[in-house]
Amino acid sequence: MRRANLNSWLLAAPLTGVLFVFLILPILLIVAVSFWSADEFSFRPDFQFGNYEYLFGSAVAWKVFGLTFMMSVIVWALTLAIGFTIAFFLAFHVRTQKWQMVLFLLTTIPFWTSNIIRMISWIPLLGKNGLVNQTLIGAGLINEPLQWLLYSSFSVCLAFVHLYTLFMVVPIFNTMMRIDKSLIEAARDGGASGFQILTNVIIPLSKPGIMIGSIFVIALVMSDFVTTRFMSGSQLANVGRLISNDIGLLQYPSAAATAVVLLITVLLIIGAMLRLVDIRKEL
């Protein structure tokens, strides 16, 4: 028993080491720095709650946290609806395994390419002189180019859906493929309609996949700053940008305090979701 434990520990040691140095230590340091004090030019070790007091007293910060949460909910709902539909089509409507595999690969391949390039790719479509505006003007539907297509909340949301729907499709498809087809047959024999089979059999049994996908999407959107900055042309704020702006101004203690609050928020949300699913069993 002892020996077996030692063996496991040795095998887990590299992972533990990496996570200790590059995850635990940095987080502890952020927590420590969040209590430091700073002026315009420098910051120094201290233990005071000024950074948190300032953060919680700032109407802007509350609003930005609210906006970030709203964006997460909207993107979550959209990616879930689209991701579920795609997974459902692949798992239950594509009949041969070969085609299932091919179409599944086709949905996942963009994941392996650069996110920043995929964001840049929207410029020629959504820009002021972009393809969408050209088409709409050409069709006589509008006279002036639509300004809200690019560098707006719309384009940020669109990019999130574009980048992250995949994180829904993969786990949901994975759980759907494990649903025993005889359960569906039994439901059909019992007289259930297609819609009833969907709501009473497939959706409940796909729940673990839905939870895992939701965890990914919410964690990614809550803590994003790259997509929001690029796709909004620096016009839209979210918590990640609040932090990165502070860093840009060398206000590390203030950035650290915001980061700690963001971390706690994300962990609370994810923690609540993890109670509903046992990830280790679902892999």
Binding site: A4, N5, S8, W9, A12, L15, T16, L19, F22, L23, I24, L25, P26, I27, L29, I30, V33, I215, F216, A219, M222, S223, F225, G240, I243, S244, I247, Y252, A255, A256, A259, L262, L263, V266, L267, I270, L274, I279, R280
Partner: peptide
Amino acid sequence: FPGSTVLFYLVIGALVIPSILVSLGIGLL
């Protein structure tokens, strides 16, 4: 093994932790 659950949740933590914290923390370190 003793500690396996904690280590597992750390792995999940590394996945869901806001990237900017990793960046900021390691940068500071």
